[in-house]
């Protein structure tokens, strides 16, 4: 157990962030706070993916021109570019989808005059 906590310490941070976001999404009453919780959840997953790409002793995945000319590129010298690519697009798409979520909140506020979940449910029951 202690050994796991030391060698895999980075996973603790993602688990804590995911739990924070999950709790915010479930327990908070305000829809804006729920959205913030969802964003924390999303960023925990993005950080987790980026950490997958790391290699000890590796540098950024920009190939050295000298090594490329000699056809002597060793994959162990460079970190994994694939998670970076996937998360690069995921971040920008996350911003765009957050924009849609904020738009829906604006419309809900215009219609019901509040963002509190229980008050909206009360207004819907009438």
């Amino acid at each position: 157990m202690i050994e796991w906590m030391v060698t895999k310490h980075s996973y603790w941070f993602y688990i804590i962030l995911i739990m924070t976001g999950f709790y915010g999404m479930m327990a908070k009453n305000n829809l804006m706070k729920k959205l913030i919780g969802m964003n924390i959840f999303q960023w925990a997953i993005i950080l987790y993916y980026i950490s997958i790409g790391s290699k000890k002793g590796g540098t950024i995945p920009i190939i050295d021109a000298q090594a490329a000319v000699r056809h002597a590129v060793r994959a162990a010298d460079y970190i994994n570019p694939l998670p970076h690519v996937l998360m690069l697009t995921a971040i920008v798409v996350g911003v765009a989808t957050t924009g849609i979520a904020l738009t829906l909140l604006v419309i809900i506020y215009r219609k019901y005059g509040t963002l509190e979940e229980d008050e909206i449910i009360e207004a819907l029951k009438k």
């Binding site: 950024i60 920009i62 690069l88 697009t89 971040i91 920008v92």
Partner: peptide, 12 residues
């Protein structure tokens, strides 16, 4: 193409 960057970052 030769350093960190690209369309997504530059666009932002």
């Amino acid at each position: 193409h030769s350093s960190p960057g690209g369309g997504f970052q530059g666009g932002c």
